[in-house]
Amino acid sequence: MLGAGLILFLAVLQGATELFPVSSLGHAVVVPPLLHLSFRETDPAFVPVLTLLHLGTAGALIVLYRDQWWRILRGFVRAAVRGRVADSDERLAVLLLVGTIPAALVGFFFVSALKSLFADPRFAASMLIVNGAILLAAEVFRRRDEAARGAPIAAPASHAAGDPAYEPLESLTVRRALLVGLCQVGALLPGISRSGVTIAAGLVAGLRHEEAARFSFLLATPVILAAGLLEVPDLGPDRPTALLGAAAAVVAGVIAYLSARFLLRYLRSGRLDPFAYYCAALGVAGLVLIR
């Protein structure tokens, strides 16, 4: 049975880490044993509570992009009826749909196998190191590309919003959106960050940092929301846990909203390197300290 303190701790952890490219799930699996919290990842309430926290995060993303989501939904309906894409909102709707399908299908049909990995903190710690390597590799590729294009490497404003060397989100091709979506499948493993791999894939696909983050957040919303809604019936008759989970979801959502605003501002000039080093350090600590 998960206690109230632990659920709120997980809420704060989830809200703070979900949208940063550091894997919230990896943190939820690795951090409690690192802190010697009395806690089993195999607890039947663990995944449903985590799912409610994800719903809070999805709510934060919907609030953050509420105007855009409204335009995307209307664009999707228009394009679906017409059978043709006519403007940037409709195009973005199609890109998001194409990018969402791989993770949604793999997550749904392999959910049991994936849940079994939640019980292994050392596996999650290993994946955190892999996540750090992915983030670092994406920045290395981007720096080489910037050098090849003659952009000033590591200059604070080298990938600012007005940089014409890299593309805005709406010009992404469907094939590249699908590739970003396929990368999102890897994030079903605890320790691999969904925002991390999709921002990294967006950078490799030629998006600006801030645009890659925007695509990552938009792409995450339907997957997180659907996964959360599908798990809600499995919460069971344990009402106190469900109510507590709902309150924790609100906490996670508020913190996730603030985190997303911060990350979008940071990525106007910052890079993924600090997150890569942090993930690698936490992964190493987990492998060394968790027995």
């Binding site: 394009a79 679906a80 009826v81 059978g83 043709r84 749909l97 399908i101």
Partner: peptide
């Protein structure tokens, strides 16, 4: 539903 929408795009 998505397959039907895709078919509408492809026709």
């Amino acid at each position: 539903v998505l397959s039907l929408i895709a078919a509408n795009f492809a026709r």
